[in-house]
Amino acid sequence: MWQAVELALSGKYSKEEMKKRITGKGGIVAYLGTNNMIDVENMVNEGNKEVERVYKAMIYQIAKEIGADAAALNGEVDAIVLTGGLAYDKQLVDKIKNKVSFIATVLVYPGEDEMQALRDGVVRVLNNEERVKTY
């Protein structure tokens, strides 16, 4: 993080630009100029080694974060659940599985459905399965 401090204070970037370098324009898009993971995967499959290095690094970091949470839970993990848009990417999912399935079984629920999730929250309360909370 010293390097981040050096970069931030180098005078080359405004505060907003520096924040953007961390979130918004950081990660895959910073290395490869695209945030489209379908493109990234295609380039990997076409044998682009540079792209593959970055792709592998992201998977490595995701697996490490899962490992960190396994430690936070004292190793008592009933399942690992992969979700969100990237969970549609079978290659990515398989590569993560290879690294973390020693911890627990991996379940995959691709995408996200916010409308259904909101509905379910209300249904649980209306059916008295859960008590409504007050802010």
């Binding site: 399942a79 659940v81 969970a87 993560i96 379940l107 916010e114 259904q116």
Partner: peptide
């Protein structure tokens, strides 16, 4: 919202209550 929703789905799949198990949920989008 999504982490909680899929965690409940996973619990159901495991035939357990969400409140009785430990999960690691990974939301992968932007």
């Amino acid at each position: 919202l999504n982490q909680k929703a899929v965690a409940r789905r996973a619990a159901k799949k495991l035939n357990k209550r969400y409140e009785d198990i430990n999960l690691i949920v990974v939301h992968m989008g932007g």
